[in-house]
Simulated scan of single mutants.
Amino acid sequence: MARRPAFAVLLAIAAWAGAGAPALAHPHVFVTARAEILYAPDGAVRALKHIWSFDEAYSAYITQGLDKNGDGKLTPDELAELAKVNVESLPDVGFFTTAKANGKPQEFGTPTGAGLVFENKILTLTYTLPLKTPAHANRSFGIEIGDPTYFVAFEIVDAPDAVITRDAPKGCIVRVARPPKLDPAIQQKLAQEDITATPDMTGLQVTTRALVACP
Rank of each mutant, 00 (worst) to 15 (best):
residue 186 I to W: 09
residue 180 P to C: 07
residue 183 D to R: 06
residue 196 T to W: 14
residue 197 A to F: 01
residue 180 P to A: 06
residue 201 M to N: 09
residue 168 A to M: 07
residue 168 A to G: 08
residue 184 P to G: 07
residue 201 M to Q: 11
residue 174 V to S: 14
residue 198 T to E: 12
residue 197 A to C: 03
residue 200 D to A: 14
residue 173 I to V: 15
residue 195 I to D: 02
residue 181 K to L: 10
residue 178 R to D: 05
residue 183 D to C: 04
residue 201 M to D: 00
residue 168 A to K: 05
residue 169 P to A: 04
residue 168 A to V: 06
residue 197 A to E: 15
residue 197 A to L: 01
residue 192 Q to A: 15
residue 192 Q to M: 14
residue 202 T to L: 05
residue 186 I to Y: 12
residue 188 Q to S: 12
residue 175 R to L: 10
residue 170 K to N: 05
residue 189 K to N: 02
residue 182 L to H: 07
residue 199 P to C: 03
residue 173 I to C: 01
residue 193 E to Y: 13
residue 174 V to H: 12
residue 169 P to Q: 06
residue 192 Q to N: 13
residue 197 A to I: 00
residue 185 A to Q: 10
residue 180 P to E: 03
residue 198 T to M: 07
residue 177 A to F: 13
residue 193 E to D: 10
residue 188 Q to N: 11
residue 182 L to N: 08
residue 172 C to D: 10
residue 183 D to K: 09
residue 171 G to Q: 03
residue 180 P to R: 04
residue 177 A to Y: 08
residue 190 L to Q: 06
residue 202 T to P: 01
residue 194 D to L: 00
residue 171 G to I: 02
residue 179 P to L: 07
residue 199 P to A: 01
residue 184 P to I: 03
residue 191 A to P: 03
residue 175 R to S: 15
residue 197 A to D: 15
residue 172 C to G: 07
residue 192 Q to G: 10
residue 191 A to V: 02
